[in-house]
Simulated assay, not measured.
Amino acid sequence: MPNTRSLISKTPSAKFEKGDMPLRAMAPDRVAISIKFSGICHSDIHQVRDEWSEGIFPMVPGHEIVGEVTEVGSAVTKFKVGDRVGVGTFVDSCGTCYPCIAGRENYCRTGNTQTYNGKHYDGEVAYGGYAKDIVVKEHFVLKVPTNIDFAASAPLLCAGVTVYEPLKHWKAGPGMKVAILGLGGLGHMAVKFAVAMGAETYVLGHSPNKAQDAKDMGALEYLITVDAMETHKDFFDIILNTTSADLDVDALLAMLMVGGSLVNVGLPGTDQSYNPFSLVTGLKSIAGANTGSIHGTQEMLDFCGEHNIVSIIEMVDATDPAAIDAAYERVVGSDVKYRFVIDAATI
Score class of each variant (00 low, 15 high):
10 K>D: 13
10 K>G: 08
11 T>E: 15
11 T>R: 15
12 P>C: 05
12 P>G: 08
13 S>N: 15
13 S>Y: 09
14 A>Q: 13
14 A>W: 10
17 E>W: 11
18 K>L: 11
18 K>W: 10
19 G>R: 05
19 G>Q: 05
20 D>R: 08
20 D>Q: 14
21 M>S: 04
22 P>S: 07
22 P>T: 11
23 L>Q: 07
24 R>P: 01
24 R>L: 08
24 R>G: 01
25 A>I: 11
25 A>W: 08
25 A>N: 15
27 A>H: 06
28 P>T: 09
29 D>I: 01
29 D>H: 13
29 D>M: 06
30 R>M: 14
30 R>Q: 12
31 V>Q: 03
31 V>E: 03
34 S>Q: 15
34 S>E: 15
36 K>I: 03
37 F>E: 04
37 F>L: 05
39 G>F: 02
39 G>W: 03
42 H>N: 04
44 D>I: 03
45 I>W: 03
46 H>Q: 11
46 H>Y: 14
48 V>T: 10
48 V>D: 02
50 D>S: 15
50 D>R: 11
51 E>K: 09
52 W>E: 09
52 W>I: 11
53 S>R: 15
54 E>M: 13
56 I>M: 14
58 P>Q: 09
59 M>L: 15
60 V>K: 05
61 P>V: 04
61 P>K: 06
63 H>T: 07
65 I>Q: 07
65 I>P: 01
66 V>Y: 04
66 V>A: 02
66 V>L: 01
67 G>I: 03
67 G>N: 01
67 G>Q: 01
69 V>Q: 00
73 G>D: 08
74 S>G: 03
77 T>V: 05
78 K>S: 13
78 K>A: 11
78 K>H: 12
79 F>P: 03
79 F>N: 02
80 K>D: 01
81 V>Q: 10
82 G>W: 00
82 G>V: 00
85 V>I: 06
88 G>T: 06
88 G>M: 06
88 G>N: 08
89 T>H: 12
90 F>E: 08
90 F>T: 04
92 D>Q: 09
95 G>F: 09
96 T>D: 14
99 P>T: 08
100 C>H: 09
103 G>S: 06
103 G>T: 11
104 R>M: 14
104 R>Y: 13
105 E>S: 03
105 E>D: 07
106 N>V: 07
109 R>P: 00
109 R>N: 12
109 R>A: 10
110 T>S: 12
111 G>V: 00
111 G>W: 05
113 T>H: 04
114 Q>L: 14
115 T>F: 02
115 T>S: 07
116 Y>D: 01
